[in-house]
Amino acid sequence: MIKRLVSIIILAVVITSLFMVLSETAPFGDDETVVSHRYIYKGVDETGSANLVTAVVLNYRGFDTLGEVTVLFVAATGVGAALYTRKHPVRKNKVEASLIVKTGSKLLFPMMLLFGAYIFVHGHLTPGGGFQGGAVIATAFVFKYISDTRYSIDHVGFTKMESASGMIFAGLGIMGLLLGGYFLLNILPNGTPGELISAGILPIIYIAIGIKVGAELTGIIDRMMGVEA
């Protein structure tokens, strides 16, 4: 008990003092930095994306995002490897869902898919993007799993989609290198900022990411549903 108390006190003291220093040197709510100044004032013209976060995520720092997609891919593969079973996993929960859940999921499933797609297609215009949209799509499939005890995704189809969308992202990067000399160069015209078809390759990348993230998160859930503890 005393050990806990001591550890709490030490932690509290160390961490608050660190952040006291921080709030002195970088006051909260301070002005933007040199680098971001360019993003904020030139971002729309240079990338054609009205959403500046998307401009930074996919264009200025697009390579980070490729890495990020890879992290999720590694983790999904790792979950698959860790929970590997010889046969395809058979689901264990045998409790039937109630009528309300069943009907509700039937009603909501297509709408959730549509909403997820909306989020990632409009990633360069409104808050949201591929990762958020993909997460919504995966949620729709969780709903399916909850409402139907026999439901299982089409593994082959999901794998194909996942691979294809990943290859589109990496392939676009390599294409930029071949056509323009820079990896992940925006090779399409920017168009008018604020319109659906604008910002060059950004919407394509976000659609690919949306499909990939949706498929991967669903795959992770499928794996975890299938194990016997």
Binding site: S36, I40, R61, G67, E68, V71, A75, V79, A82, M224
Partner: peptide, 28 residues
């Protein structure tokens, strides 16, 4: 400033990945 938000987006995904992997290892 949009840059930190972009970094957070990346870190969220990394966090999700680590959590998923860690939970499946815990199952094992």
């Amino acid at each position: 400033d949009p840059l930190p938000q972009a970094l957070v987006l990346t870190n969220i995904v990394i966090g999700v990945s680590v959590t998923a992997l860690a939970l499946s290892v815990v199952i094992r």
